[in-house]
């Protein structure tokens, strides 16, 4: 049963690496922000699955905090590229 979770995490990590192609090569800044947002979501999913694999519930708490903090980071980057931060 553990093999299934490990395989899922491996697939998720491969997807994160694929998304990094867009993060590095994205032609414009909003493209990179979209890729970063996808990486954050996939990382939260991987952390939740790692909590099952290692049987450490603290990993899920880390995933919650990571989701909320990455949301704040995304909002700040969006404000910055929209030119809405105070001068």
């Amino acid at each position: 049963m553990t093999d299934i979770w490990v395989a899922a995490v491996v697939v998720l990590v491969a997807l994160i690496v694929l998304t990094m192609v867009r993060l590095i090569a994205g032609p414009t800044v909003p493209d990179r922000v979209v890729a970063l947002d996808a990486i954050n979501t996939l990382t939260v999913a991987a952390m939740i699955l790692l909590a099952v694999i290692y049987e450490q519930i603290i990993f899920v708490d880390v995933a919650i905090v990571y989701a909320l903090l990455s949301f704040v980071g995304t909002l700040f980057i969006a404000k910055y590229i929209g030119g809405e931060l105070g001068q």
Binding site: V29, P30, V33, V34, D37, T74, L75, I77, A78, K79, Y80, I81, G82, G83, E84
Partner: peptide, 10 residues
Amino acid sequence: HAIARAAHRS
């Protein structure tokens, strides 16, 4: 939503 708005504003 915030990313789409920022992309349009930029």
